[in-house]
């Protein structure tokens, strides 16, 4: 459990750093500003996404594609619930909900694409190693 929490904390730190740095770069380019509440929401979303992604062992029996889709659905549902609770205190505009949908979907698709590329590349490397072993050469 301790090891799991350590790993989860590491995932949260990495994902939040990536999201906040990317957000800062986008803000500089587009000239937009972000608020403190947005920063905290971003952190909350990173915690939820990292938690769901860390449960990948549960989805081990499914194909990676199904796992990605299921995890995406769970992340979306949990984040929507989280934002709904926040909206009871501070209402979110319809545009805010679209932004939320976009800011989770886009990185998710990008990461899924990277995952597929890495998987394909790794399989290709393994295939090459197997051929080399079969031919008895390094």
């Amino acid at each position: 459990m301790k090891k799991y929490l350590k790993t989860l904390l590491m995932y949260v730190c990495i994902s939040y750093t990536m999201v906040s740095v990317s957000g800062a770069v986008v803000n500089i380019i587009t000239g937009t500003k972000t608020s403190n509440s947005n920063t905290l929401i971003m952190f909350g979303l990173c915690v939820i996404a990292s938690f769901v992604l860390s449960l990948n062992k549960i989805f081990d029996e499914f194909s990676p594609l199904l796992m990605i889709v299921l995890q995406y659905a769970v992340v979306m549902a949990l984040c929507a619930g989280f934002l709904f609770l926040l909206s009871l205190i501070d209402p979110i505009s319809p545009k805010g909900w679209i932004e939320y949908f976009r800011s989770i979907t886009v990185p998710y698709i990008v990461i899924a694409g990277i995952y597929y590329y890495c998987l394909y590349d790794e399989a290709k490397k393994q295939d090459r190693i197997i051929k080399d072993i079969q031919n008895g050469k390094k």
Partner: peptide
């Protein structure tokens, strides 16, 4: 093994 490759469902 003849070939090792991932399928469309991302299973290798």
């Amino acid at each position: 093994i003849k070939q090792l490759r991932p399928d469309l469902n991302m299973k290798v």
